[in-house]
Design a protein around this nucleic acid. Sequence first.
DNA 1: TATGAATGAGTTTTCATTCAT
DNA 2: AATGAATGAAAACTCATTCAT
Lengths: 211, 211, 211, 211
Amino acid sequence: MQRTQRTLGRPRKEQDGISTKDLILHTATGMFLEKGYPSVSMDDVAQKCDFTKATVYYYYKTKADLFTDAMVQLMIRIKQRIIDILSTNASLETQLFQIAKAHIQATVDIDINAFMKEAKTSLSDDQLQLMKEAEDNMYGALEQAIKKAMDKGEIPQSNPRLGALMFVSMLTAGNNLDNAYKETFSSLDDLVTQIVNLFWNGLANENQSSL
Amino acid sequence: MQRTQRTLGRPRKEQDGISTKDLILHTATGMFLEKGYPSVSMDDVAQKCDFTKATVYYYYKTKADLFTDAMVQLMIRIKQRIIDILSTNASLETQLFQIAKAHIQATVDIDINAFMKEAKTSLSDDQLQLMKEAEDNMYGALEQAIKKAMDKGEIPQSNPRLGALMFVSMLTAGNNLDNAYKETFSSLDDLVTQIVNLFWNGLANENQSSL
Amino acid sequence: MQRTQRTLGRPRKEQDGISTKDLILHTATGMFLEKGYPSVSMDDVAQKCDFTKATVYYYYKTKADLFTDAMVQLMIRIKQRIIDILSTNASLETQLFQIAKAHIQATVDIDINAFMKEAKTSLSDDQLQLMKEAEDNMYGALEQAIKKAMDKGEIPQSNPRLGALMFVSMLTAGNNLDNAYKETFSSLDDLVTQIVNLFWNGLANENQSSL
Amino acid sequence: MQRTQRTLGRPRKEQDGISTKDLILHTATGMFLEKGYPSVSMDDVAQKCDFTKATVYYYYKTKADLFTDAMVQLMIRIKQRIIDILSTNASLETQLFQIAKAHIQATVDIDINAFMKEAKTSLSDDQLQLMKEAEDNMYGALEQAIKKAMDKGEIPQSNPRLGALMFVSMLTAGNNLDNAYKETFSSLDDLVTQIVNLFWNGLANENQSSL
DNA sequence: TATGAATGAGTTTTCATTCAT
DNA sequence: AATGAATGAAAACTCATTCAT
C-alpha cells in the first residue's frame, strides 16, 4: 500500500535541481545562438557542461537532434514570453515596446533565418518541419495580436503576418547593432523606443503614400 | 622609361573574358551567401569552378581572405547600386521602393550580421575591420539620403542611421521569407510595396506616440 | 572515501601489456630518431601502430606534443641508464666505457641538437623548455660524475660540463659512422675503446699544451 | 680579330657581380644549414632571393639537386679552408686551434650526419654518393694531417680518421652550445681553446689507461 | 632568362559518431 | 547514467613540380 508519490530510493543526481539533459540542452542553446550551428561541436558542448562527448550522445542521438531540440524549446519559451506580454490589458504599442525590451535585454538572439540557412544541409526534413512549426507558432502569437488590433480598428488593416515578421527582424537587427553605435543611444530604453516608434509610426508619419 | 612589352609567365585562361581569380571570387560569394562561411569548404569552391583546391589557394592565401574579399566586393557592388538609385531625381519613397525591389530581385542576400557572427572567430582583426568599413559605406549612402530628406523637411527628423539599418534588415527578412508564405503575395511588386509601406508609414499611421 | 570500483568507459586494448598510448609513444620515438621530426607524419606513426591518425590525435593533441613527449621520455630513460652505470664502484674511465658501449649498442641515437634545430620552429616555448630541462638533466648526471672525479683528484680540474657535452657528441658521431668505415674496426668494443680513449687521453697523450 | 677577353654586348644581369644561380645556391645553403632539408621549401628559397619558384627550378631541376649542390659546394669550401690552414708551418695543435676557431666563427654549422639522415629518403643514390665523396674529401685533409703528425712522431700512433671525425663532431657540438652556457666562457678563444685542449690532451692527461 | 598559372599528392588537424563497459 | 577508446571522413593548408609564354 503506497502512500506517497515520492519516489523511493536515492534520488538521481540532479545538481542544483537541473537534470543532465536539461543542462546539456541549455548549454547547447546558448552556444548555438552565439556561434551558429556548424561552429559548435559536440565536444564543445560537452566540455562546457563538464561531461564527455559520449554523455551528450547518450541524450541526443545526433548533433542535428540536439540543435533541433534546442531551437524548438527556445522558440517555445519565446512564444510564451510574447503571449504573456500580449495577454495584459496594455495597448498594443505598449506591449510591443515590452516585447522589444525583453528581446533586446536577453543576451541571446535568435536570428532564426540565419540558423535555418546554416543548418539546412544537416537537418532532416522532419527536423526542419519541427523547427518551422515552432517558428510559425512563435510569430503566430504576435501576428494574432496585430490582427486583433486591426479588427478593433486600433490600427489600419494590412498584412498582420508581414508586420510580425518585420517587427522581429527589426529587433534582431537592433540586437546585432555595432557596439560603438549602440553607445550613441542614451539608454537601452531609448534604443528600444526608437525602434518601436519606427515600426509603429514609420519613417514618414503620414497617411498617403505617393506611390 | 621601361616597357614590359611581353607579359611574363603563362597567360591566364580568360575564358569568356572572366579571369580565374574573378571566377573564384564570384563563385565563392554565391556559395557563402547561400550556405554561410563554415559550411563552404575551399574544395567546394574549387570544384564548382572546375579548378583544384590548390588553385584557389594560389589566389587566396586563406579561406578567411577569400571570404573577406568576397564580402567586401559584394558590399561595394551593393553600395554602388544604392548610390545609383539614390542619385536620381525621384522622391525618397520611390527610391526606397526601387532599392527594395533590386535587393529582393537579386538572388543573393547578405545577412551581414549573421555572417559576421559566423566568421568572427575565423577572421583576423584586419579582416573584420575591412568588412566593417565596407558595411559602413554600404549603409552610409542610404543614411545620408535619409538625412537629406529630413533636412529638406520631406520627413520628420529622427535617427537616420537607425532608419537605414532597419530598412536593410526588413529587406533581408523579406528575402528570407518562407516560400509558401511568399506565394501568398500577388506579385513581387506587391510584397515590396507592402514592406516599403510598412517602413515608410509604419504600422499605425499616426503622428503621436502614446508612450 | 570514494571507490571507483568499476572503471568507466571502454577498456584499453592492453595487448601484450602495452597500452595504446605507450605503443604510439614508443613507435613515434623510433621513427623520429630515424628520420627526424619533419619527415615523420602523424599518419606514418598511426599506420606503423595499426591505428588510425585520429587515434594518435586522441592521445596527443598535436604532433609537437607527441614529439616533445617522445624526446623527453627518451632522455629520461637515457639519464637513468647513465645514472645506473655511474652509481657503481668502478672507476670513471670504466664507467664511461660502459656508457659508451650502451649508447652505441642502442640502435636509437639522439642527436638532440639536430632535433632541436629541426623542431625549433614547430615547438612552443613551453615544449622547448621541457626538452631543454630533460636535456640538462641528462647531461647533468654525467657532468656531476666528472666533477666528482676532479674533486677527488682522479683527473685534473677543468670544465666538467664541456667534458660531458663533448663525450656525448663523440658517442653520437660514433653512432653515425659510415657503415663501411665502421666495419674497419675489429669489433664494437674496439670502436668504443678507441673513442673513450681519445676522450680520456686525448690525441697527444702529454701533459703540456704548447698553446 | 678579337683582342680582349671581355665579352661583347651587354653583360648579363649580375647584381653585385653574383650570378642568379650563385645567389640561389648561396641563399639555399644558409637556409638548409639553419633549418634542415625538409623545413626549407623551394618557395622559401625563391622568396629570400626575390625570385619566383619557377626561377629556382630553371636552375635546379629538383629540390634534391639544389640541396646536393649546396652541400657539396659547402664541403668543398670548408675542405679548402682546412687545407689552407694545414699547409702552414705551424704545429698541428696550433693548426687545429685555427681550424676550430674558423669553424666556430662561421655562423653556419654543418652537422653533415644530421643532414644526411633528414635527406636520405629524398636523395637519389647518385646524389648521396656525391655528398659522401665531398664529405670524405673534407675529412680526408684533416685525417692526412693527423697521420703525418703521427708518422713524424709528433703524436702517438692511433686511428687518424677517427680522430678527424671526432674533432669535427666536437666542433659541431661546440657550435650548437646553448647560448646561456656559451656565455659562461670569457671569450670565443677561451671556448675554442678548451675544446681543442680536450681533444688534444684528453680528460685525463696521463699516459696510462687503466682499461 | 624568368615568370605567372595550375596541380596532385600530401600534411596537420577536427569532428560526428560508434562501441564496449 | 556515464565514459574512455577508436574511427572515417573531411577540412584547411602546403609544396615540389610542370607548363606555356
